[in-house]
């Protein structure tokens, strides 16, 4: 059975918008960060889909780069969240408001 490419694209677009909605609505820094990772993963899914559909490997290659960068992002991001937790004992974005938004 062959699943049409549109299904994959719709799924990844849906994942992307779930990620965007998560960033815009959730208040916990770690959940916001997870939503961002979801956005990156939806892009990965799109890349892999196109790669398999077009029969060239550039997309799959790109996914490795995106995953590596996402890992680096996670390392730095969690370090930043830990630093702020040590100072303020909270990771709620609404309470992190010395600077005006």
């Amino acid at each position: 059975m062959n699943i049409p490419i549109e299904y994959y694209l719709i799924l990844s677009a849906f994942m992307f918008f779930v990620g965007v909605a998560g960033v815009l609505t959730r208040r916990n820094a770690i959940i916001v960060f997870m939503s961002i990772e979801l956005m990156l993963n939806s892009a990965n899914l799109t890349l892999v889909t196109f790669s398999s559909y077009l029969g060239n490997s550039i997309g799959q290659l790109f996914v490795f780069f995106v995953m590596t960068v996402a890992a680096a992002d996670a390392a730095v991001g969690l370090a930043i969240i830990i630093a702020i937790f040590r100072n303020k004992l909270t990771v709620n974005i609404d309470e992190i408001n010395i600077l005006k938004w």
Binding site: F16, G19, V20, V23, A29, V32, F33, I36, M39, L40, S42, A43, N44, T46, L47, F50, G59, F62, V66, D73, V76, G77, I80, I81, A83, I84, I93, I96, N97, I98, L99
Partner: peptide, 22 residues
């Protein structure tokens, strides 16, 4: 706080860029 805000919004933007590139 500056670092957290920069990180969250910067990675958010990166998500758009990667999806755009895809």
């Amino acid at each position: 706080e500056a670092s957290l805000k920069y990180f969250l919004l910067g990675s958010f933007a990166t998500g758009f860029i990667v999806y755009g590139i895809a």
